[in-house]
Design a protein around this nucleic acid. Sequence first.
DNA 1: CATGAATGAGTCTTCATTCAT
DNA 2: GATGAATGAAGACTCATTCAT
Lengths: 200, 200, 200, 200
Amino acid sequence: MNKRQLSAQTTRRKLITAGLELIKEKGFDAINVEDITRKAGVAKGSFYTYFKRKEDIVLDISRTPFGEIAEELQNMKKMELIERLTHYFHRFMECVESCGINVCRQWTKDVLDPNNVPDNKDGQKWKYDFEMLKSILEDAISNGELKKDTPAELLTHIIISELYGMMTCWCMSDGKFEPLEWTHKFCKIQLRPILKPYLH
Amino acid sequence: MNKRQLSAQTTRRKLITAGLELIKEKGFDAINVEDITRKAGVAKGSFYTYFKRKEDIVLDISRTPFGEIAEELQNMKKMELIERLTHYFHRFMECVESCGINVCRQWTKDVLDPNNVPDNKDGQKWKYDFEMLKSILEDAISNGELKKDTPAELLTHIIISELYGMMTCWCMSDGKFEPLEWTHKFCKIQLRPILKPYLH
Amino acid sequence: MNKRQLSAQTTRRKLITAGLELIKEKGFDAINVEDITRKAGVAKGSFYTYFKRKEDIVLDISRTPFGEIAEELQNMKKMELIERLTHYFHRFMECVESCGINVCRQWTKDVLDPNNVPDNKDGQKWKYDFEMLKSILEDAISNGELKKDTPAELLTHIIISELYGMMTCWCMSDGKFEPLEWTHKFCKIQLRPILKPYLH
Amino acid sequence: MNKRQLSAQTTRRKLITAGLELIKEKGFDAINVEDITRKAGVAKGSFYTYFKRKEDIVLDISRTPFGEIAEELQNMKKMELIERLTHYFHRFMECVESCGINVCRQWTKDVLDPNNVPDNKDGQKWKYDFEMLKSILEDAISNGELKKDTPAELLTHIIISELYGMMTCWCMSDGKFEPLEWTHKFCKIQLRPILKPYLH
DNA sequence: CATGAATGAGTCTTCATTCAT
DNA sequence: GATGAATGAAGACTCATTCAT
């Protein structure tokens, strides 16, 4: 990477950092592009060198932490199913919480309407999460932890809805609702009953 | 109710109907107050006779159908718990689906941030739903269907999250996800395992 | 017309007057909407109460003087054909000249691309002029001044092109080209030779 | 010409070709410098190695075909006047038509306001055309085809206006108007009557 | 209660152009 | 000569909201 590319990376990083802080502090709608560039110390127009639209920076902000989860799951193949799921859910919700409620709200608003997200080359977040969870269950079917006739898709749907639902409830709750805590309780108390009929 | 009040009622109704149709068709952000008043056949300024802010009409639109659910639940006291819950969830999701995905998206966006909704004298939708579900469970504890030590609040949280999560997933899914169908499956397959530890 | 409508008329008139003066002085591209509203003494947003886009005011500015020509032609039915045409051409070019070269340039630029002119309920200026000229010739065919086999459409094309061409040359010429003078010479010297083959 | 100059020629050519195609397709205002460089496969900044301003590429694009006309006319000295004029007009309009309606529109818009075109070292297109046509007529006066007292300047004005007028009408007409066809008719039917008083 | 003209803050976005590499 | 990141001026346009009629 030459000097030019390096400087570009830096500018991009500055924008994301500034954007993250401002959104956490005031919320997406309350700030404008100029606020972000001013805080980042770059020209207003430079924002559009890296993001097509104001909204796009949120996608980038939230993309970062989620990337790591997938890797982690690879290193847990030998764990027990419920343990793996528990880990996944905790990590998922940790990422959500660490972004802050305002970033989460804006992110949810953005992805709520798939038409809002052009150039979504990574596929939709929801589908991505869906597939990741499903693959965990399917792996468990393959290796015999779950019965052959386990309705993987159905379970995936139900569990993903629970996760996204906790996130939604958090956003709606004015911060009083602790997503990580409830995720913890959900895993501890409900995961086993939900899976029980299909466990060997 | 005199003539003036009657005519006022009519105007209000016209605005709500027009607003509902437009939001269904194009989404809240894509329409403006004038679109609504034009479709309703009234003057632009009249909108503000009935709604303080543009956003307020959405609350009114969605308030209507949900109002009936509470009444229906009163007439089901003798049903079995799981049957009552199933009915509640179905009705809830029917209301959601009947509004159309765009209304649902906008409604979710609006309530996602409680600060967006001042003058919220009816309390927040989420709290309202939460309390309604909790009261169903508490009734069941009272009449002995559920054990005395049932963690009503925890179960309410988990189940409400599931409902809101299905709604969120629907919004994100470009309409392919059928919320009513998945609610049906959830009730049929998961409700009993979730409650089983607490059923007598 | 009540007080409200009257005041609206006034505002519109103020905008057109201010716009005309500014465009004459500086040219359309060199001014912005705020310049116009400031000069008109109204709020910036009010411009958009009367015109959908910045460009639209030019159409209104130029529409006014041309409207009168049609009326005048009605009162000249008894004149000789060449006299009528001469009058029409002079009046046409007077209107063009009276708007000033900058208005004329902008108007030409605007109508140069028909796609630029939405809501063009009056039809395109060019078609309108075309039909008006053609009707003069057709009237002359009807009343025997011109032969029955006169190619009205062809002559219309050629003469309209001459008029628009003079206008175009004026715009290009940095004001040195006098459209009215050349129109005069054209009528005096060329009109008769052009029509001669078809005159009785 | 060394290697560097050669490569520069290539880049310049690529830009002009790309620019021409894009303007034909979308019109000048609808594209930006980056569109051109992207299509040409060069860096954005390289545009400014060859053109001082965005507009300048249009002048280059339209300059190309017209250059040939002058040469051709040299080889027609022995033709009859009307034949030479007819040839000139046809070639002129062929060049116009071959550029496509969007290039023609943009070119007309550009030259419509002479102030737009600084560094116009070649003189203005209009003057150039004017002089070329006038020289044809003056040659004809010299060699006795036209009378000594023929008002060459006046005729030039009138005929140039007709040519530019046809071009203008074409631009306004949404492409339905066929400039070459009408030019043909004009030459066939009107050229002789216009010149008749001055022919020997 | 109804009207609709007037308001003007607010913002996104575009893009020609520059210049360090 | 080529690159493409950075610039920042510039402006159009929207629209929720008000208020005199």
